[in-house]
């Protein structure tokens, strides 16, 4: 199927690892011009080398924070200078990591009783301000072209907050992010711009692996047991690959998905219970 995005300029935040890297790779295969942004230069260089093999001359990397609106605006301006107006914006920023030494790079663990509100604000910056800033910086280009795709890599806890895992911060902030995308979709539909949100479920990333190590320690079980426990909750009986997330994202960003907007769609092997 021709997705109709050949030559389109796409920005993928958090594009150097995991889900972001898989999305950037898929876009590169589909002929898009791809800019990946991430904080860590070494990760960026490794991924860029891979992408360059697929799409010589059509990839660019920028080391930058994607949570600070001014930094995001600089990334968008540099991308435009390099490849032209932006058509596709993928927001993929992880939540506030409270203590990486203790919880790996897993989502902000804590309880309602114990957690102060400063951490809520940090999570709001990581997840909501970041995606708002990227969308806002790219929308003028999209309006000018009469075509745009905004997609946020969110979490299933937006619709079904997890109460069996201590994920207070994502439980509180992921739903506002999903709502924000729904609201932006309504504002932008008449400009030919679609806005969607992925409810990420159980996807096999390095981050998830490090989270299981933390979870196993927290529950005093082995990593294999923690992994099995998580796997048992998935109707399809396995974790998904990042490329399986990228497949949906690429479809939503294609010309074929022009009628799909304002949606929050789970990718989790049937693990979401909500209708």
């Amino acid at each position: 199927m021709d997705y109709g995005i050949s030559g389109r300029v796409a920005i993928v935040s958090g594009g150097s690892r995991g889900i972001g890297r898989a999305i950037a790779t898929t876009f590169a295969h589909e002929g898009a011009k791809v800019v990946i942004a991430s904080r860590t230069l070494s990760n960026l260089e490794e991924t860029l080398a891979e992408l360059e093999e697929i799409a010589p001359g059509r990839v660019h990397g920028i080391a930058a924070s994607m949570t600070d609106p001014e930094s995001v605006a600089r990334v968008v301006a540099e991308s435009r200078d390099r490849f032209g107006p932006i058509s596709i914006a993928i927001s993929n920023v992880i939540g506030h990591v409270i203590d990486a030494a203790k919880e790996g790079s897993g989502p902000g663990a804590g309880t309602f009783e114990g957690m102060g509100t400063e951490a809520y604000r940090e999570e709001f910056t990581q997840l909501l301000i970041s995606s708002w800033a990227l969308a806002r910086a790219c929308v003028p280009d999209m309006q000018h072209q009469g075509w745009g795709r905004i997609c946020n890599i969110g979490s299933g806890v937006a619709r079904e907050p997890s109460t069996n895992l201590p994920h207070l911060l994502p439980n509180v902030v992921r739903a506002p992010v999903a709502g924000m995308h729904r609201l932006m979709a309504a504002r932008l539909a008449s400009d030919g711009i679609t806005v969607n949100n992925i409810l990420t479920g159980s996807i096999l990333t390095e981050r998830n692996r490090s989270y299981w190590v933390w979870l196993a320690r927290e529950r005093n079980i082995t990593v294999a047991e923690a992994t099995q426990d998580m796997t048992d909750r998935i109707p399809l009986g396995r974790f998904g690959e990042p490329s399986e997330m990228a497949a949906l994202v690429a479809f939503l960003c294609s010309d074929r998905a022009r009628m799909v907007t304002g949606q929050s769609i789970p990718v989790g092997g049937g693990g979401s219970a909500h209708l």
Binding site: T163, N164, R174, L183
Partner: peptide, 27 residues
């Protein structure tokens, strides 16, 4: 969502709905 949406209020409310699920599970 409606056309006259108070978008900031909607965003804050969604955060509270998530928090309420956490509180329900915890206490």
């Amino acid at each position: 969502v409606d056309a006259e949406a108070d978008e900031l209020a909607a965003m804050a409310s969604l955060g509270m709905l998530g928090l309420h699920k956490v509180i329900t599970g915890e206490v």
